[in-house]
Amino acid sequence: MAKVVESIDRFNSSVRTLLILLLLIAFSTVSYYGYSIYHEKEIALAAKDKEIEEKNVKIGELEDEIDQLALRLKLLKIDRRVARMKVLSQAKPEGAERVQTVLQFVELDQHGTPLSQPQKFTIDGEMVYINGKVVKFADELVEAADPLRSASICLLQKIYGEHQTPAQGFAIDKSGERPEVYGVHEKPTEFEQKLWENFWEIANDPDKAQQYGVRSANEESPGMKVKQGKQYEIEIRSSGGLTIKVLPNEVET
């Protein structure tokens, strides 16, 4: 009999323990869901804040990429002044068949300052052509603002009129020498010297051109039908070639 009572007590104890455990589990579950429901807004808000923060980080990264792209595009579009000319007179001399144009011409540095005293040229005709050797560098060098190769460069050679051949034109820069405007060092570097001395060799050798970072090397001769009293600027774009544009009348030479 005593063993039976002891067994019943032991069973009841186990049942009570199980019930207590079940109650604890139920209480924990109810508490968790109650906490979740009570703090549902706070939890959702925290999740939203985290999502917004992650999106802001991505936006910041995209803005950096956009800024870099904008800078690269800007570098590719930069125009550099290389020379300026002013039409001093334009008339047909007595006994002449055509109009003669007298020009004042001066090369400029990167700040627009004259490199030397202006030169005077008498051109046969009204159309003026500027002939120069142009070196265009690889876009990645321009984008990276390479100290020497961040912009196309040119060696101005001749200026002539519509009724003259380039060979009859007036010499501007000395052939095979580096223009002063591109002298970023006190003395020409080996790179600069070789570039101008071996211009046509580089132009005709893709491997050598790649070695120098050159995209293309060729001669260009933009022309402009000029008018008396007008001033014109010769420019070169970072990734492009020579252009001639008219200046406002109030600009002083």
Rank of each mutant, 00 (worst) to 15 (best):
Leu103Thr: 08
Gly125Asn: 13
Thr101Gly: 12
Ala151Ile: 07
Thr113Trp: 03
Ile172Trp: 05
Gly125Tyr: 10
Gln110Leu: 15
Thr122Met: 08
Tyr160Ser: 10
Ile123Cys: 05
His111Phe: 11
Asp124Ala: 02
Leu103Ser: 09
Thr165Pro: 00
Glu126His: 10
Lys120Gly: 07
Pro118Asp: 09
Gly169Thr: 07
Thr122Lys: 02
Ala145Lys: 14
Pro118Trp: 07
Ser150His: 15
Ile153Phe: 00
Ala171Trp: 11
Asp173Trp: 03
Ala171Thr: 14
Leu155Thr: 09
Glu143Leu: 02
Glu140Val: 07
Gln100Met: 11
Asp173Thr: 14
Pro114His: 03
Pro118Thr: 11
Leu156Pro: 03
Lys136Ile: 13
Gly132Met: 10
Leu103Asp: 00
Asp124Val: 01
Phe105Ile: 08
Phe137Thr: 00
Ile130Ser: 01
Phe170Trp: 04
Asp139Asn: 14
Pro114Asn: 05
Tyr160Gly: 00
Gln164Pro: 04
Gly169Ile: 07
Val135Gly: 00
Gln110Cys: 03
Lys158Glu: 01
Leu156Phe: 11
Gly169Lys: 11
Ser152Tyr: 10
Val106Leu: 12
Asp173Gln: 13
Gly132Gln: 13
Ile130Asp: 02
Leu115Met: 07
Ala171Pro: 04
Glu143Gly: 01
Gly112Asn: 04
Thr101Arg: 04
Ile159Arg: 05
Thr165Val: 02
Asp109Glu: 08
Ala167Asp: 08
Met127Glu: 14
Gln100Val: 15
Ala151Met: 13
Ile123Val: 14
Ile130Cys: 10
Ser152Pro: 12
Val135Pro: 02
His163Val: 04
Gln117Ala: 10
Pro166Asn: 11
Ala167Trp: 09
Asp139Tyr: 07
Tyr160Ala: 05
Lys174Asp: 13
Ile172Val: 15
Thr122Leu: 06
Gly132Arg: 09
